[in-house]
Write a protein that binds this DNA or RNA. Sequence first.
DNA 1: GCCGTTTTCGGCCCGACTGTTTTCAGTCG
Length: 580
Amino acid sequence: MAKNQELAKILYEIADYFEMEGVAFKPYAYRKAALSVEALQEDVGEIYSKGGTKLLENIPGVGRNIANEIKEYLERGKIKRHQIFRKKLPLNLNELTAIEGMGPRKAKILYQKLGAKDLKSLERAARSHKIAPLFGFGQKTEQNILQGISFLKRSKGRFLLGEILPTIEEAYEKIAKLRGVEKINVAGSVRRMKETVGDVDFLVLSKNPKKVMDFCASLPEVVRIWGKGATKTSLRLEQGFDMDIRVVAKRSYGSALQYFTGSKEHNIAIRKIAIDRGLKLSEYGLFRGKKIIAGETEKGIYKKLGLQWMPPELRENQGEIEASSENKLPQLINIDDIRGDLHLHTTWSEGKQTIEEMASMAKAMGYEYLGISDHANLPVANGLDEKRFLKQMKEIDGLNKKIGGIKILKGAEINILKDGSLDIKDQVLDKMDYVIAGIHSSFKMGKAQMTERIIRAMRNPRLNIISHLTARKIGEREECQMDLGKIIRAAKEYNIVLEVNSQPKRMDLKDINIRRAKEAGVKMVISTDAHNGDHLRFMELGVAQARRGWAEKKDIINTQSLGKLSSFIKKKKNNRNRLE
DNA sequence: GCCGTTTTCGGCCCGACTGTTTTCAGTCG
């Protein structure tokens, strides 16, 4: 499939080049083809060898011309048109268009006039004031480019949802309490609970927009006001991210919410459905001719289009629209379904709180059980050896007698060593209620070797859960290379539960992998990997990620009662006894 | 360049804002 991805990338780039040239509609056509190729289940090479360019033309968005270019790519590894473009315009468009206000057309002009081909050369041109005198540019544009570059450098433009959510909730509460505010919603990627977000959009219903605008601009956490109009204000908060607040009319509130929630792909698809029905959808409403027929609520709009309302987490045009039209939307898991947390650390290893403190906090959250899973041998994290694990179990036994209302389970997060073995002896693992294992070293292994490493660990019948499977850290560490399809099949075969790690930086499994696991019938657990009491609230993020992966209550084991969870784990133990 | 129950031409998602112009192109969401 790697071939499909590479080809898609080339097609996207051709689209960008056409855009730079100002050619109409071809960018759209190439992007559509690229998207299809990207999502293809079968390898393009196989399709071509089966039925030539004729069969390639069956791919949506691929016609005779692009089919021939795919053929070119398959035979020669490159596409002539792409090569010619690249020679003519050798600039790093992805890097340049990441700047706010910079698109392909401006990038092309700046390259041709000033030779700016990447961030570095563009910054040099802007600093020496060569941009402002150009036709169609000016002082302001030059300044904005410099600011955009500095923002990119500082933050790479995206923020971890988990890090900014508390600030967003605070702002939400403040605006909601303002007199005259009838309704407020957060929209955009925050509402869709994407793991990283670019900025935050608020929608407000109020008869006094000016008051809302004034109030928001005067919030103490505001460090910059980008713009303040009658119904829209754009702000930069001290944490470094931007917030847009819009006041919209009541009759358009639902359509505005739908529109600003996105995703863009979802909206494009929805608008096409409107067009098919002779209607027009915009942020102002759903229209037949000039007559508005829906707009006050999202539900009303979707209904008029023959669709069920879709949870924002699903709105990525990844099949949710089809499922909605057939009344086959999943019953997504909810935060209230969670009965306990099975992955957290205490003062025994690298955690900040004692078992007792964590247990009482979990009890206050209404949990039925809490699993303690301190690190094994990991030197940096003050990991436990066999002796200390046995000592910790004794402490847990004592606490279970002392604290009522919540059951503390004995677990551990042990290491999957380079060869796939586990670093705690089976005799000690046998005494635990459940066992988690994860990769904490040798991240840069080859794909085949890494896959074998993980599957070998799964074969240990004492193992219940694999934590943060791909070991990625958003913005810091790439996913480990592995054959995910193979690993998911192995998880199913060996009855291994895959973790949805809720640390903002991890989010691992991520949404698309959750969906793959679910479709393969693999059970998952949503865990916080808490290192202190505050982290227990990350559960909300993991649940959101699971919802983005279409997970339902039945897919997640820590929605089960203690009794069911125990017998689920015990069943595995019994099977093992029979085998041994 | 692609597509078609409006099928070989004519449309392709839509509207607003910004910064530059003096009626609009480019960009964004």
